[in-house]
């Protein structure tokens, strides 16, 4: 698989989308003593990748696939019932327009992310990061149609990022990441890989800052996890609708850490 250059941008910690201020529970894990050295950090990262990271990867892949699907559809103003399951179409009326149908699908997928995020603090952190990423991605990869008003009616549809922003202004981070990956020309598996990578790199960096660990040793932990990143990404890509089948691995300790962090008096990271 050739590496998509856009994927490098999306996974780079220098992407200016606010990610640097989130530790994904690492700050509280350190405050409680759970993470205190390289070995405990390694266990934390591995656990994070295979629970919330796995779920995020599947959600990002599903979002990217929905972006692909929306790009393949025809004229924007035309009824578009076939994109929905029969039951969803009924809920919207007999002939939803493209934007109504897509809006309903983005809301539905975002709700799947909500259902898989038990902690209210984690939901808030995910939505904050999703909103900021969406904002950045819409500037980096604007809908081509906005700049090409001479395009035919079929090409004048909003892009996936605009569809998502209209339907869900504060989407969960994996949803925004998947839509951004699609807008950047990446595949669902790329999106899943980006989400899995994101699930461990930010927390690893936070540990370097908070514990003063050797940064090369911490990057060694990330290097050890690269085979797991690959399997997480490939495991995350087979899911299509109905999205209820998406994995729902839980990590109660991460939920508790997130809640504890939200109430902490001293806090360097947002989450």
């Amino acid at each position: 698989m050739a590496v998509n250059p856009a994927l490098l941008l999306l996974t780079d910690s220098r992407l200016p989308a606010g990610g640097h201020a989130h530790s994904g529970g690492t700050e509280q894990a350190i405050a409680t003593g759970t993470v205190h050295d390289l070995a405990s950090l390694a266990a934390f990262l591995r656990g994070r990748l295979h629970t919330s990271g796995h779920v995020a990867a599947a959600l990002a892949a599903a979002a990217c696939a929905l972006g692909e699907e929306s790009s393949r559809t025809g004229a924007c103003a035309q009824p578009w019932p076939e994109a929905l399951g029969a039951s969803r179409a009924e809920a919207l009326g007999t002939s939803p327009t493209r934007s109504e149908a897509l809006g309903a699908l983005w809301i539905l997928l975002d709700a799947e992310a909500d259902a898989r995020t038990a902690s209210p603090a984690q939901r808030a952190a995910s939505r904050t990061q999703g909103r900021l990423l969406l904002r950045v991605a819409r500037r980096l990869w604007p809908s081509p149609t906005l700049d090409d008003l001479t395009a035919g009616p079929d090409l004048r549809c909003p892009g996936a990022l605009d569809d998502l922003a209209l339907a869900v202004p504060n989407p969960h981070h994996p949803i925004a990441l998947g839509a951004a990956a699609h807008a950047a020309g990446a595949s669902p598996e790329d999106a899943a890989l980006a989400a899995a990578y994101h699930a461990i790199t930010g927390p690893a960096t936070a540990a370097v800052r908070l514990l003063g660990l050797d940064p090369v040793a911490v990057h060694g932990l990330l290097a050890d996890l690269t085979p797991d990143l690959a399997t997480t990404a490939s495991d995350a890509t087979p899911y299509s609708r109905p999205w209820a089948e998406l994995p729902a691995r839980s990590a109660p300790a991460l939920d508790l850490l997130a809640e504890r962090h939200a109430g902490a008096k001293v806090r360097l990271f947002v989450s």
């Binding site: 220098r14 992407l15 200016p16 989308a17 606010g18 990610g19 640097h20 201020a21 989130h22 530790s23 904050t128 909103r131 900021l132 904002r135 950045v136 936070a206 800052r209 908070l210 806090r267 360097l268 990271f269 947002v270």
Partner: peptide, 20 residues
Amino acid sequence: VETGCCPHTAIRDDIAANLD
């Protein structure tokens, strides 16, 4: 706004949270 140990990052390299 929390800045994740990097106050300069939040005003220079990644201004997303402050802009928000």
